[in-house]
Amino acid sequence: MSSKKIRVLVAKPGLDGHDRGAKVVARALRDAGMEVIYTGLRQTPEMIVRAAIDEAVDVIGLSILSGAHNAIFPRVMELLNAEGVDDILVVAGGIIPEDDVPMLKEVGIAEVFGPGTPLQEIVDFIQSNVKK
């Protein structure tokens, strides 16, 4: 029996004051058998990348409500690239305008989940796209 598990870092960058949404997603991923590392509010891109490396996660889920995604998400990808990390699947959620999605995908965010995305859809996406 292999005890391999998908490990996910659920990170909340930016200045959002609450993390209810991120916690709901975190619990859904746990209930789908994943190990979810949750790091709390106000994470900088540097903190996110460091935690992802130390925790050897397979997936980073970025959640943001405050609208700073166009600055923060590309920065996370840039830092991951600088560390030579290319085996982590990065997905995003929160309030992200449709118009910004192409640019985010361009920099390497695999998928963007809007508010109200069924949790199962997120679980399925991760399970079928994780890079190992």
Partner: peptide, 16 residues
């Protein structure tokens, strides 16, 4: 589920 929610890092920000 075999999954886990690991939240101890929340308290460890200052060393992150």
């Amino acid at each position: 589920s075999g999954g886990a929610l690991l939240g101890d890092r929340i308290r460890m920000q200052e060393h992150s």
